[in-house]
Amino acid sequence: MNRILSSVAAALGAALLVPALATSAQAATCSSGTFCLYYNSGLGGSRLTLNNSVSDLAGYKFTTDGAGEGQYVKNNAASAWNKTLCPVTVYFRSNYGGPWDSFGYNQSGNLVNTYNENASVEFARTSCG
């Protein structure tokens, strides 16, 4: 997985501010049944764990140990991991507007359409985990 993410990071090149990879898979693990946003590319740095849609990430902060801990999540996330069964979508603007990145069950990767422009997160339009 790291190899894939690295090549993505390389492909994105200058668009990535901090192409750091997670120090270990365990540290970056997102819990089953949740969706995680990471401060760094390649599931690196501090993360935020979500269980439901958020129409505006304003006020949310990265909570776990690592780079970016305590920083705001809105327009500041670089990668994501979906450990819920349904697709979860990250949007460019609040209220689920603009281009988006969608992740299916257990899919992870760098944000492309919403890299450091992540304002809202949509779980299923009805609740889904």
Binding site: G33, K83, C86, N95, Y105, E122, A124, G129
Partner: peptide, 19 residues
């Protein structure tokens, strides 16, 4: 308004709930 309407589709039971 600007919100997403509810599609009314019943969701599958969440993985968290299943676990």
């Amino acid at each position: 308004g600007y919100r997403l309407g509810d599609t009314g589709t019943p969701p599958p039971r969440s993985l968290a709930a299943q676990l």
